[in-house]
Amino acid sequence: MATNIPSGSLASIVASTIPTDIPLQEQIDTFVARGAKYVPEEMARQVDSHIEHLAASGVAESALKEDEQAPDFTLPDALGQAMTLSQLLTQGPVVIIFYRGEWCPYCNLELRAYQKALPQLQELGATLVAISPQTPDHSLSTQEKHELAFVVLSDRGNRVARAYGLAFALDEAGKALHAQIGADLPVYNGDNSWELPVPGTFLIDQSRTVRLASVDSNFFHRLDPSAVIARLKELK
């Protein structure tokens, strides 16, 4: 059964006790197991229902696929500086992580794992960027809180997430669930759309071809950095 715990200090405390030297999915599974005792049974059912609804919507299946051309984009980083995909690609391949926001403990574990893998990614010539619909202020909070040394971009309105086939709008039940766990999306994202991206990871080569795409409507599932590193080595 899927479970969740409210975001905030409790989630941070639980996450901070999870070793960083185990695979990312094992970290997330450990977090879920440890957090289960804090989750009311009704909330757990609501999370299960939300994930089932996302799976049935087909949003993951509509996302950008391997061998397709990645849409170019320009987005502001946490300090408001514009970053353009095609410009980043002049330096080498680009790894893009679409994450939900700083309120999401699974996203935070994912970002932590990719930060740890950053030296290996850079050795293979790749640039790592993370994208969420949060405002730049919340992106900056994410970057500072987790001491991220890679670019964190603000996709206000999920414009880029939509171009990559990841954006979806929460229904009323989804809005209530996220409000219950402290994810006030209008505050975090700066609009009233209640839209999020399905978490996704893409490896894009210098021709803007997607060489690796991992998208899952179950937000407990994330791609381990080792898979990206392995594919990068194949590109050499």
Rank of each mutant, 00 (worst) to 15 (best):
L232D: 01
P93W: 04
N192W: 04
V160W: 05
I181C: 06
E195G: 04
H53L: 09
L223P: 06
S132N: 09
H53N: 12
V151P: 00
D29N: 15
S62C: 06
A126F: 10
H50F: 13
I28P: 06
V215N: 07
Q46G: 09
Q134C: 06
L75A: 03
Q180V: 00
R159G: 11
K236E: 14
Q115K: 11
T90L: 13
D191P: 05
D171S: 09
A149L: 14
E52S: 13
P197K: 02
W194C: 01
P119C: 03
L121G: 09
S12A: 14
A82M: 10
Q134N: 11
G58Y: 08
G182F: 12
Q122R: 15
R156Y: 11
L54K: 04
H138V: 04
E52P: 00
M83C: 12
I204C: 07
Y106I: 09
F219K: 00
P19C: 08
N158L: 10
L89S: 10
P6H: 07
A78C: 05
V160K: 02
H50D: 14
L177H: 03
M43P: 10
P136H: 05
C107F: 01
A169C: 05
S7D: 12
E110T: 11
A183V: 01
A169I: 01
T127S: 15
E195F: 01
G157R: 03
H146P: 05
E172L: 11
P6S: 11
A44C: 08
Q115S: 12
R159N: 14
S132V: 02
L24M: 08
I96W: 06
G35L: 07
M1K: 12
A130M: 06
P186L: 02
Q27L: 02
I13Y: 13
P225K: 00
S12Y: 09
I181F: 11
G200F: 02
V228R: 00
L177W: 04
G182D: 12
P71V: 04
R222E: 05
K233D: 09
N192K: 09
T90K: 15
D21M: 03
A163N: 14
